[in-house]
Nucleic acid binder design. Structure first.
Lengths: 244, 244
DNA sequence: GCGCCGTATATTGTATCCATAGAATGTGCC
DNA sequence: GGCACATTCTATGGATACAATATACGGCGC
C-alpha cells in the first residue's frame, strides 16, 4: 500500500536525510526508542553508517514534526506525553478525521473497499500473535488512511498523519492493555460497512465515537499507570512493560 | 512584541538554525520571498553570515512545516498554492479555531480582552497607511491567537499557527485586494464583544463564518487572478506589489 | 554535607573537499 | 534550420576535520 517504489519509473532516490528521518520516525513510533530516550548524533550516525550531517538534518525535521524535542545544547529526546497531551491528540483526530471521511466516502471505489478489507483480515491474523504489537499500529493507520484517501485533501491528510504518528505509541498501548483490539476490529468492520452503503453521517459519527472511545480509555490507562508509578516503590516489581 | 530578549532571565539563546529558520519563515510569510522563488543555500548563508549547515537544517525544518518544498538535488522553493489548497487551509482553520475558541472563552481574562482591543486599535491605525500591508497579517494572527491562548491546547495551537503561516501570504492578499480589512475589523470587534459576554456558541459561529468568508472570497480572487494571469499580458503594469 | 572548580562529553558551528544530478550550453548530424 | 547528443557548469548532498561552547559529572576543599 505504501510501497510506491513499485512503479519502476520515477525513482527520485530520496536523500540520506529523508531515509534517516524515516527510519528514526519508525523506530520512535514502534516504541523501539522509548520515551525520554536521548538521541545521540554519533550513535545514530554510526548505526546507519552515515556522517552526522544527514542525522542532524533528520533530527531537525522530526523536531518540526513534533516527534522529538530538541533542547538547545542538550540534544534531542523523545518526549513523554501527558494524559492531557494524549487526550488532545485524540480530540484533534476526532475533529479532523470524520470531516475527511465525509468528503471521501462518495469517491471511494470498490478497490478501496477490498484493500480495506484485506487490511482487516491481516488485523485479525496479527491479533492472534501478540508478539507483533508494533504491526497493529501500522495496520490501524493503513485502514484509516485508505478510507480517507479519496477526499483529496493533502494538507488535512498531512496533519492527520502527523497527529497519528505522535499518538501511535499510545494507540498500541491502548490496543494492548485494554484488550481494545477486538472492539477496534468490530468498529472497523462496522465503519467499513457504513462506507460501503455510503451512509455518510452514520459512518462519520461512528468513526468519531471510535476515536474518542480509544482516546478516553487510553487516557484512563495512562492516568492509572501514572499514579501507580508515582506510588512508593512497593516491593512489587511487576512485570512492567515500561520499556515497551 | 516578539522581543523576548528583554527579559533578563530564561535566555536559552536559540541556535543559529532556529534563528535562520525564523528569519526565513518571516520573509516567506511576508511575501518578501515570492512564490516559486528558489532558496539558494549559499545565498542565504551569505545573507546571514553563517555557514551552510545551519541553513540546510533550517530549510529541512521549514520543509517539515510545509512552508517550503525541497526537491531532491534541486533545492528548496516556495510553493505556489492553488485555489484548492487555499480553500483547504481555510477549511481547516474553520474547523479547528472555533473549537479552540470554545474552550478558551470561559478562561479569558480582562487582561486578554484589553490586549485584544489594543491590537484592534493598531489594526485601525495600520488600515490608514496601506504601505504596511505585511503588518496586517501579523496583527490578524496576534488577535486570533490571544483569543485562543486560554484553551491550553498546545498541539492544536501548533497546528493552527502552522496553517495560518502557510496561508498568511494569501490572507494579506485578501485583505488588500478585496478591501476586506473593514469587514474583518468589524467582525473582529463583534467576535471580541461576544467573547466578553461569554456567549460561546455565538462567538464560535461568527468566527467560523469569519474564516470561511475570508477563504471563499480569497479563493475567488485567486481564480480570477489566475485566469487574468493566463490571459495575454496587457499593458497594465499596475503599482504591483508582486515583489513585496 | 555543601558549594565550587575542572574535566569529559555532546552539541553547535565552521571550513574544506568531493561526488553527482540537472540544467545550460555547444556541437554535429540529418 | 531543427533536433539529438555530448560537454560543461552550477548547486546540492554528503564526508571529514576541527574549533567553540554548554552541560553533566566527579572531586576537592571548606
Amino acid at each position: 500500500m505504501a510501497t510506491e517504489l513499485s512503479s519502476s519509473l520515477a525513482i527520485p532516490r530520496q536523500s540520506l536525510t529523508c531515509a534517516v528521518a524515516e527510519k528514526l520516525r519508525e523506530q520512535i513510533i514502534r516504541g523501539e526508542i522509548p520515551e525520554g530516550a536521548q538521541l545521540r548524533q554519533d550513535a545514530i550516525a554510526n548505526q546507519f553508517q552515515v556522517s552526522r550531517i544527514p542525522v542532524r538534518e533528520a533530527l531537525r525535521q522530526l523536531d518540526a514534526e513534533g516527534l522529538i524535542t530538541i533542547v538547545p545544547n542538550r540534544g534531542a529526546v523523545v518526549p513523554a506525553l501527558s494524559p492531557q497531551d494524549v487526550e488532545e491528540l485524540f480530540t484533534i483526530r476526532a475533529l479532523l478525521e470524520p470531516e475527511v471521511l465525509k468528503l471521501s466516502i462518495p469517491e471511494l471505489t470498490e478497490e478501496d473497499f477490498e484493500n480495506a478489507e484485506s487490511i482487516l483480515r491481516n488485523y485479525v491474523n496479527e491479533l492472534r500473535r501478540e508478539q507483533h504489537v508494533s504491526a497493529w499500529g501500522r495496520l490501524n493507520w493503513d485502514f484509516h488512511s485508505i478510507l480517507y484517501c479519496r477526499a483529496n485533501r493533502p494538507h488535512m491528510m498531512s496533519i492527520i498523519r502527523n497527529v497519528n504518528a505522535k499518538g501511535e505509541r499510545y494507540t498500541r498501548l491502548q490496543l494492548y492493555l485494554t484488550h481494545g483490539m477486538k472492539r477496534a476490529n468490530r468498529e472497523h468492520h462496522e465503519i467499513l460497512e457504513l462506507c460501503r452503503k455510503r451512509e455518510v453521517s452514520g459512518a462519520c459519527e461512528l468513526l468519531r465515537e471510535h476515536i474518542l472511545y480509544a482516546g478516553q480509555s487510553l487516557k484512563e490507562v495512562l492516568q492509572q499507570r501514572r499514579t501507580t508509578a508515582a506510588a512508593p516503590p512497593r516491593s512489587r516489581n511487576r512485570n512492567n512493560s515500561a520499556s515497551v
